[in-house]
């Protein structure tokens, strides 16, 4: 038996332990044994991948982009969640504010999530620029409440929503998962409304370096893709990790973030 694959993940919630212990147990039943290492932030995790301390990194989209930049494109993504292929950024305002589209943000206050959050900070600015809205014409309120975790905790996005409720901001930028998590417009009537939704883009993936051989990756991927929502033993793990099924990576979904990182001069090593 080959040695276990070591997967790195960032501990953005205590449930990460439960999730990865569940994954380890699942893989322990087959021919693709794995273990995991938790990091406090994505910077350390990417360092560990580059140092080959870990074999795979469960990376956010920003961590993927930085790994690509640091390896000059040598790394590869091997799988992602179905939900990672259709991620979106949503801009919300107070219900009834009469705003519609990115143009309506010009001259107003926009609350952004943590500066290393692709969905709540980096991509919103990219889409504003693409829409022709100069960010200098927007009063940006940065809420860096979960730096290092690339917005995974959702904390900075919820804080941005609070800023809108308190009239400290006119708009908030969120990931679609946070927007869905508060029930969109439905659960809190009269509170918020979406004024713009981004095109879909890719979010997390399992990232490997070229040195990781196919004969180690292939059985692990076969087992990963065999996880089945309809299997009661698998479903709790899949549900906690926020997916129905694992899928091959959708790499063209990272184009907008590569452009944003380049535009905003974001360091490849953060």
């Amino acid at each position: 038996m080959s040695k276990p694959l070591i997967v790195g993940s960032v501990a953005y919630t205590p449930n990460v332990v439960t999730i990865w212990e569940g994954m380890r147990d699942y893989f322990g039943d087959g021919q693709a044994e794995m273990d995991f290492v938790l990091f406090s932030n994505y910077g350390r995790q990417v360092d560990a991948l580059l140092d080959q301390t870990i074999d795979l990194a469960w990376n956010t989209n920003l961590a993927w982009v930085r790994t690509v930049l640091q390896t000059r494109g040598e790394c590869r993504a091997i799988a992602m969640r179905d939900t990672d292929t259709v991620f979106q950024t949503v801009i919300v305002a107070r219900a009834g504010a009469g705003a519609d589209g990115l143009e309506s943000i010009r001259g107003k206050r926009l609350a952004l999530g943590s500066k290393d959050s692709a969905q709540a900070a980096i991509l919103p600015l990219h889409y504003l620029k693409r829409e022709g809205v100069d960010v200098d014409d927007v009063d940006l309120i940065r809420i860096n409440s979960d730096i290092g975790k690339h917005g995974d905790t959702g904390r900075s996005e919820l804080d941005a929503l609070s800023a809108v409720l308190d009239d400290r901001a006119d708009f908030a930028a969120l990931g679609i998962n946070t927007w869905n998590g508060i029930g969109r417009e439905e659960l809190m009537p009269g509170a918020f409304e979406a004024v713009w939704e981004s095109p879909t883009y890719s979010h997390c993936n399992f990232t490997a370096l070229p040195g990781l051989s196919d004969d180690r990756v292939a059985p692990w991927l076969d087992a990963l893709f065999a996880m089945d929502w309809d299997n009661p033993a698998h479903q709790p793990i899949l549900e906690m990790e926020g997916l129905r099924t694992w899928v091959p990576p959708k790499l063209d979904g990272y184009t907008s973030l590569f452009e944003a990182v380049d535009e905003q001069g974001i360091s490849p090593r953060w």
């Binding site: 919630t13 332990v17 904390r155 919820l158 804080d159 929503l161």
Partner: peptide, 11 residues
């Protein structure tokens, strides 16, 4: 929102 913050961070 406070509930969402706390629950998100709870095991």
């Amino acid at each position: 929102l406070d509930l969402a913050r706390r629950v998100n961070n709870a095991p």
